[in-house]
Computed example of a mutant assay.
Amino acid sequence: MLRRFLSLLALCFMLPLHATDLSIDTNLGLHRWTAAQLLARPDVKNISIPSDVAFRRSMQYRAIPLRALLPELKHSDRLQFVSSDGFSVDIPADAILNQAGAEAWLAIEDSRQPWPALPGNKGDAGPFYLVWTHPADANISVEQWPYQIVRIQRTQDAATRFPATAPAASLPVSSPIRYGYTVFQRTCFTCHTLNGEGDAQMGPDLNIPHSPTEYLSDDMLRAFIRNPQSLRRWPEGKMFGFPTQASLSDADLSALLAYLRYMAQHKVSP
Score class of each variant (00 low, 15 high):
R62V: 00
P92K: 03
L248C: 07
P212G: 05
Y259C: 06
H210S: 06
D25Y: 08
A164I: 04
T34M: 00
D218M: 09
A68F: 01
S249R: 09
A166H: 08
A200Y: 05
V173F: 10
C191P: 12
E72L: 12
P65W: 02
A251W: 05
F128Q: 07
A264S: 15
T182P: 00
D252V: 06
L231P: 02
A35L: 09
V44A: 03
R32D: 06
F162S: 04
G126T: 11
T244M: 11
Q148N: 07
L8P: 00
D110A: 02
T165R: 10
R112I: 00
S83I: 03
R57Q: 14
Q60F: 04
D218G: 05
T244V: 09
C188L: 12
G241Y: 05
V268L: 02
A158F: 02
D252E: 15
I24Y: 13
L206M: 13
A107F: 11
S175N: 14
S217Q: 12
Y129H: 09
S217D: 02
L257W: 09
Y179W: 01
W33D: 03
P270D: 03
A36T: 03
P270Y: 01
Y215G: 12
A68W: 03
L221P: 09
S170I: 08
G123L: 08
S170H: 08
P65Q: 11
I47H: 09
R62W: 08
R62S: 15
L30D: 01
D252I: 12
A158G: 00
Y181M: 05
S51W: 01
A223I: 09
